[in-house]
């Protein structure tokens, strides 16, 4: 009798314990989900707070913004699989194109907002250890023997695809469009890669926290953030040519229709283009797309760098570049399996 009582007490305790957990944490609020890529965590933390205030002033409603961060390609995948994002703020247009092809985003999404739907831009720079001991100045130096490179995997990370294409753009000029020589150069660069993480933030941790490698190929904003986190340990080298990375944003039509959040989600994205939104982007080391506000942050950026865009004939837009370089069996696969 006594023994079964103990067992009963145990079961009851467990039920009480789980019942306790079932109590609701918060009342219903208007809520939108922003599925974003890796390095935008700090940016959206601050931007969301600003937008909440703005929305409260405008409508009197409280809005909650749920954030999700990860490698851009991986995030796009999760939205296709059913992770319900009201807005997508990814690293490159191709990842949103994939979501469009899955039927979640309307065709022609990139024309819905100004500047190719990219409220802020960035570029790819080198983050090197203090004093630049390996003397890395330009893309050509990355192919040197004994240089340890950290970059995420172009298959899963948007930033990594920009890294690869920036190196390609340099080599195209250097070797006068000789594709064989370009591929040889890119192969050398990737042979120097020590760790290929899935996302940009993973690579930053590998380089900054775990001390691996001589150079991190990084988003400009991510590089500045590392310097702010660990002052005096690193330097940024902005190569003379690089790529203009345009991380685009969009409303996910299927989700906002279902949830009735289109107005709020659209306003959220528009606010990224407002002066306040632009300044927050600038503060987090993204290049504001508004040229006036970009000037305010001129001291950070080497504005003399020659930036080539993805729509340059060399790449012919994301759809072409993706197919040519990154799809299965394309150039990157050949290089990396060599």
């Amino acid at each position: 009798m006594k023994k079964s009582f103990i067992v009963l007490a145990f079961i009851l305790a467990f039920l009480a314990y789980s019942g306790l957990g079932a109590a609701p944490v918060s009342a219903a609020e208007i809520e939108i989900t922003n599925v974003s890529y890796d390095p935008t965590r700090e940016l959206y933390e601050e931007f969301n707070a600003a937008f909440q205030k703005y929305w409260k002033n405008k409508t009197g409603d409280d809005v909650t913004i749920v954030q999700s961060h990860g490698g851009s390609g991986k995030q796009a995948r999760s939205v296709i699989e059913g992770n319900e994002a009201d807005v997508l703020t990814l690293a490159l247009a191709y990842d949103i194109d994939e979501v469009e092809q899955a039927g979640l985003v309307a065709k022609g999404w990139q024309a819905r907002l100004p500047k190719n739907s990219s409220p802020y831009t960035s570029t790819i720079v080198f983050l090197v250890r203090k004093g630049n001991p390996k003397n890395l100045k330009d893309w050509g130096d990355l192919a040197r023997e004994g240089v340890g490179i950290i970059t995420p995997n172009p298959k899963t990370s948007g930033g990594a695809r920009w890294n690869y294409l920036a190196a390609w753009a340099w080599a195209d000029k250097q070797y006068n469009h000789d594709e064989k020589a370009i591929i040889e150069f890119i192969t050398k660069v990737f042979n120097n890669v020590l760790v290929l993480d899935a996302g940009a933030r993973g690579s930053t941790n590998t380089f900054v926290q775990n001390g691996q490698g001589d150079v991190l190929l990084a988003w400009e904003n991510e590089a500045y953030l590392s310097i702010a986190e660990r002052p005096g340990e690193f330097e940024i080298v902005t190569p003379p040519t690089s790529i203009l990375a345009e991380p685009p944003v969009t409303v996910v039509d299927e989700v906002v229709e279902k949830r009735g959040t289109r107005e709020l989600a659209t306003e959220y994205l528009n606010y990224l283009y407002s002066d306040e939104g632009q300044r927050i982007a600038g503060k987090h080391y993204y290049r504001p797309s508004n040229p006036e506000i970009l000037k305010e942050f001129g001291q950070y950026y080497d504005l003399s760098t020659q930036l080539i865009t993805i729509d340059d004939p060399l790449f012919g837009g994301w759809a072409t570049a993706q197919k040519y370089h990154f799809s299965d069996g394309a150039i990157f696969d050949k290089i990396y399996t060599k």
């Binding site: 467990f14 039920l15 314990y17 789980s18 957990g21 079932a22 944490v25």
Partner: peptide, 16 residues
């Protein structure tokens, strides 16, 4: 705290 609550919730269901 939300993460803790969620961990306890999922853990309880799984254990039961």
């Amino acid at each position: 705290l939300k993460a803790l609550y969620l961990t306890i919730l999922t853990g309880s269901f799984a254990v039961i």
